[in-house]
Each structure stands twice: as structure tokens, then as C-alpha cells.
């Protein structure tokens, strides 16, 4: 029983040699592992956590940026499309205007030529009339001269003469 008691008692009585060894071993282990293993490992874990967080938030930001870029692109595209339509419309208008202008000009030209022609014709006509008038005058004078130069005795011969003279007037 003596042995048993001493065994049981030793179970709850710390052995000071073992206390000393435990202290030495544990403190050394704490120093070594703490400084060269656990601190770097914990630090690298924290760093990795931070870098993952950063990467995720950056990805989120990039996604937002892309979305906004896409929106911008669409806006630009829409604007470009509108501008194109505008330009085409303007070009068409201009073309129409040019054509119209050309048409108007041609018409005016034609009208002017027409009126010029009419004026020319009138001028020619007037000139012809004047010439006819001059010719008639000259012939009349000549006739009168002839009439006057002959002896105005005989009536019949006078009349025949007039008729002869009149027939001589060539009104070509």
C-alpha cells in the first residue's frame, strides 16, 4: 500500500526536475517557433487575406469600370449613328438644293434666251418695217417724180401710168 500511495501522490505532485525541463524546452520552442515559424506564417496568412480582399475589390472595381465603359461606348456609338444619319440627311438636302438651283438657273437661262430671241425678232421686224417704209417712201418719191415729170394731160394715160408705176413697186 505504501508504494501505491506514493504513486498516487506523485501523480499530483509536480516533479521539479520535470518542471525545469518543461520550462527550458517550452521557452526555447516558443522563442524558436514564435520567431521563425508562427510569426512569419501568421503574417503571410494575413498578407494573403489582404491581397485576396484587394484583388476581389479591384475586380469589382474593374467590372464597374468595364460596365461604365460599355455604356460610354454605346452612347458614343448611338451618337455616331445619329451623326451619320444627320450627315446623310444634310448631304441629301444639299444635293437636292444643288439640283434645284441648277434647274432654276437653266430655266432662267432658257427664259432669258427666249426673251432675247423675241426681242431680236422684234428688232429685226422693226428694222424690216423701217426698210419697207424707207423703200416705200423712196419708191413713192420716185413715182411722184415720174408722175410729175410726165404731162399730166391725159387722164386715161395718167391712170395707166399710175397703174404701171404701182405695179413697178416691188415690195419684195
Amino acid at each position: 500500500m505504501l508504494l501505491l500511495e506514493s504513486s498516487a501522490f506523485s501523480l499530483v505532485t509536480p516533479d521539479w526536475g520535470l518542471v525545469a525541463w518543461t520550462t527550458i524546452i517550452f521557452l526555447l520552442l516558443w522563442l524558436l517557433l514564435g520567431k521563425y515559424a508562427f510569426k512569419p506564417i501568421a503574417k503571410s496568412l494575413e498578407d494573403r487575406q489582404n491581397s485576396i480582399d484587394d484583388a476581389l475589390s479591384q475586380a469589382e472595381k474593374a467590372r464597374e469600370e468595364i460596365a461604365s465603359l460599355k455604356a460610354d461606348n454605346e452612347k458614343i456609338l448611338r451618337e455616331a449613328r445619329e451623326e451619320r444619319a444627320q450627315i446623310i440627311k444634310e448631304a441629301k438636302d444639299q444635293a437636292k438644293r444643288i439640283v434645284d438651283e441648277a434647274n432654276d438657273k437653266a430655266k432662267d437661262e432658257i427664259a432669258k434666251k427666249h426673251s432675247d430671241a423675241i426681242a431680236e425678232i422684234n428688232n429685226q421686224k422693226m428694222a424690216a418695217i423701217m426698210e419697207v417704209k424707207n423703200m416705200i417712201g423712196a419708191e413713192t418719191v420716185k413715182l411722184a417724180e415720174n408722175v410729175l415729170s410726165r404731162e399730166l394731160s391725159d387722164k386715161s394715160s395718167q391712170e395707166a401710168f399710175i397703174a404701171q408705176e404701182v405695179s413697178k413697186i416691188n415690195l419684195n
Binding site: 520552442l29 524558436l32 517557433l33 521563425y36 515559424a37 508562427f38 512569419p40 506564417i41 503571410s44 498578407d47 494573403r48 491581397s51
Partner: peptide
């Protein structure tokens, strides 16, 4: 413990990132 954790710490240094 030393064998395990020194190698892990070394791997942490080497595999950073």
C-alpha cells in the same frame, strides 16, 4: 513541431503570393 513548422514557414516565404 520544428521540422513541420520551419518547413511551412520556408514554404510561406517561397510561395509568397
Amino acid at each position: 513541431l520544428c521540422l513541420i513548422f520551419f518547413s511551412v514557414a520556408k514554404a510561406c516565404r517561397k510561395n509568397e503570393g
